Amino acid sequence: MAAFNLTHSDSSTFILMGIPGLEAAHVWISIPFNMFYIVSLLGNFTVLFVVSKEETLHKPMFLLLCMLALTDITMSNSVMPKALCIFWFNLKGITVGGCLTQMFFLHAGSTAHSGVLVTMALDRYVAICKPLRYTTILTNARIAKLGLVGLMRAVLFILPLPLLLSRHPFCNNRIIPHTYCDHIAVAKISCGDITVNNMYGLVMGFLVIGLDLTLIALSYSLIVRAVLRISSKKSHQKALSTCTAHICVMLTSYTPYLFSILTHRFGQGIPPHVLIILANLYSLVPPMINPIIYGVKTKELREKVGKYICRM
């Protein structure tokens, strides 16, 4: 308690409360969170390791899987280490600079993640609709450039969020009822007018996700149209099966994200601890499930991972 009071009195420090109302259960809550975190790191680092080691996997599709793994690692690492420190050691203090940095990496990672999913939709479109030109249209160099564009977009769109907040004074009550520095949670403890911050965050969230989902929907509408032109039902199934993994990853990524955003903005009747748990699961569940989905659905990757496991 003494450490808590000391930290609370520090004007350069915020207090992350964890999950208000469930403080007594923090240790128990940390068990599944820690398991999800370990599995996500293990799965994503395995993808990066296997693809980097196997020259036969140096293809656009697997380069995109590596990009997806990097964004997943960024998202989970920006949230879970501090959350586990709160759950296990009651280390609730975080500097203002550390808080804004955490906010930037979380939201930038999420935005970059969405950009990778759009590029994956483009990859599936070219593979199904223009199969004979796939290797000439989507080269590794072109995929790398698209990934760089997605990264630059994430940085340019998200950087104003912490910069705008850093200009505001913060009230004496520097307690953030959350496990991490979410943009809205930090903005609420500012003493200044946060109208611009709220509007920018809301517009950017819906603009990025809205644009990305539109591009993905356009890609899949063209894919469906191309598939329907094929007379063989067996060919229908084979073509659509190549999209299964991407569709599953999109559902695990966008569904909890949109639900979390909408409930935080408009779910006044939902208990705060439910919102916080959902927000944490968004940063944990997709990074954990994505490598599993692609490991199961992608034969080449599954065989290479199996080869390394058998060597152990």
Rank of each mutant, 00 (worst) to 15 (best):
M35W: 04
N44L: 12
V47T: 14
L48K: 06
L48T: 01
L57D: 05
M61E: 04
N77C: 15
N77V: 04
S78N: 03
A83S: 15
L91S: 13
G93Q: 11
L100K: 11
F104G: 04
V116R: 02
R124C: 07
V126K: 02
T139A: 02
A141C: 04
R142F: 08
G150V: 10
L159G: 01
P162E: 01
L163E: 02
R167S: 09
P177V: 00
T179L: 15
H183W: 13
A185Q: 14
K188M: 10
I189S: 08
G192C: 14
N198W: 08
M199R: 09
V208D: 09
G210P: 08
D212V: 03
T214I: 07
V224Q: 10
L228F: 07
I230Q: 11
I230A: 04
I230T: 13
S231A: 11
S235W: 02
K238S: 14
A239C: 01
T244L: 12
H246M: 07
H246C: 09
C248T: 08
M250W: 06
T252E: 09
Y254D: 02
P256H: 10
L258R: 04
G269I: 10
N280R: 04
V285T: 05
V285L: 15
P286T: 11
P291C: 08
K307I: 13
R311K: 15
M312S: 15
